[in-house]
Amino acid sequence: MLHVASVSPPPAEACDERLARALRQLQLECAPMGEQQAPQTQEEVCIAGRGLDALPTALCELTRLRSLNVGYNRLWTLEAEVRAPALHSPVSAGGPAAASGPGACQLAAACPAASVFTRGLICPPARR
């Protein structure tokens, strides 16, 4: 007799726990040392004025997010994916043409291949 395993969606508790974990991670990544972090929720996040060059990885886990404030940072991209080949070659602002130019940067030795929004993977463009 052939048994076919059914794939059921994750229970709500697991989803809640995943979101809560992502939120805790977000607070850890964005709270400056010794500074009181503003309360964040799964629906509303404010990480304005944190000097961020890239969005925190945990942010894209917050699938219930309704309102996001990322103002007054140094963000230059909202790209959710850093393509795999780019992880192993220098990436720079302004596309491939500038990859070997003065703006090009080397990746850190420990390269989290699956991560997105990872700080330091992409050089920000020269500020206007």
Partner: peptide, 21 residues
């Protein structure tokens, strides 16, 4: 970012988006 399908408000003022994301 495209995973945030329910987002209704995004405040991204005063950053360095020289190009529209």
């Amino acid at each position: 970012m495209s995973q945030l399908r329910g987002l209704t408000a995004l405040y991204a003022q005063s950053n360095s988006f020289a190009r529209f994301p």
